[in-house]
Design a protein around this nucleic acid. Sequence first.
DNA 1: CACTATTGTGAGTAATAGCTCAGCTCTTTG
DNA 2: CAAAGAGCTGAGCTATTACTCACAATAGTG
Lengths: 206, 206
Amino acid sequence: MPSDDRRLQPRRKPRQVRAELTRERILTAAAHVFAEYGYAAGTTNRIAERARVSIGSLYQYFPNKDAVLAELLVRHIDRGAWTWADQLDLSAGSLEATVRALVRDAIDHHSDDPQLLRIMIEEASFSQALLDTIDRHGRNRVGQVRDVLARHPDVHVRDLDTAAELIVFTVELNTHKVMADPRSIPAETLENELVDMVTRYLRGER
Amino acid sequence: MPSDDRRLQPRRKPRQVRAELTRERILTAAAHVFAEYGYAAGTTNRIAERARVSIGSLYQYFPNKDAVLAELLVRHIDRGAWTWADQLDLSAGSLEATVRALVRDAIDHHSDDPQLLRIMIEEASFSQALLDTIDRHGRNRVGQVRDVLARHPDVHVRDLDTAAELIVFTVELNTHKVMADPRSIPAETLENELVDMVTRYLRGER
DNA sequence: CACTATTGTGAGTAATAGCTCAGCTCTTTG
DNA sequence: CAAAGAGCTGAGCTATTACTCACAATAGTG
């Protein structure tokens, strides 16, 4: 249960290189532990143990457990925004090419550690600030996609905003789901089918 | 963390009407509490309190906390299988009508309590038996959809199994997401757009 | 009505998790 | 090289939670 009066700042900021390294070790360990055990069972002691760091050190750089996941999430989002900005340049080609760029971006982006990502998205119901961050990021993405679609002559849909939201959801959710279950569709097939589905949808053929 | 040697049976089966009622009260309360607090923070004491039942009573009809969520999940799945069986009769019409039946089914089915459903799906990583149940149910559904598609003359896709899996995922995941966020697309719009997208995909137009 | 079976109670237990802090080691600095 | 500050430690405190059990209350039965 999140409470609003919690400390948000760590009690110490790293000033030596050694400290920065410890912080990184903790974050790396946390990523693995959360991915393996989930958020609830990924205890702070386990994280510290895996990072070969005492539990006390963990709490010197993170005010609480939530803050560790929060930092991982923020980093992931930042990295994501970066990648997507690159892809935007590719939006000059055919509609299919544009869609493929979007799909491929989602797949590449989630290949890292789908399990951890699942945890981050699903279990992120812990802090309003973080939820807002995720939300803003989502809306940003939807907005960017909408703008790209708006400029494309082959797009024929009833409502641009709805279409943008729907395809972003569809691409991201399907990618999550498929990447999390190895017995499912292979990534390449997923890419082709998603591209087909979304492209045909946007063309508005009947 | 689940252990395999846990008791699976409750210590007592209800023999009087009174007892059956208590059991139902507990399940209803659990549904609300899980939906409101999530699984981890939805404590057994909270459930008992909400059900106006002592914590002891809860543990007379359920061997442990997991079993409560498991029962909710099984009931949900059973109810789902029922509904879907109905819709199968409608599969004689046009492709769009068939797809619409599928989409509408998903939406109706999740209107009940999307929040609870989210918990059940996402947080259900607690028991292999339950995971298997969910998995079997999923495959069943995909299989049924594939059979319906196979019989339809207008369906042109590279691979039936892949297509069936993709559209079941797409419809269910989008429905979850949209129903869980009230600020998002309205249900009616979602229905129309999903129908369009899936139908065009299945027709294989280019 | 008396006796038994069933159902309900809730204070208490054991385990576990997040987190603290007094004191240690290591690095920097003058 | 010594003093000061930064970084690190881990035993243990506090809070919380799933769960138990001895007992009380209620319902069925002859």
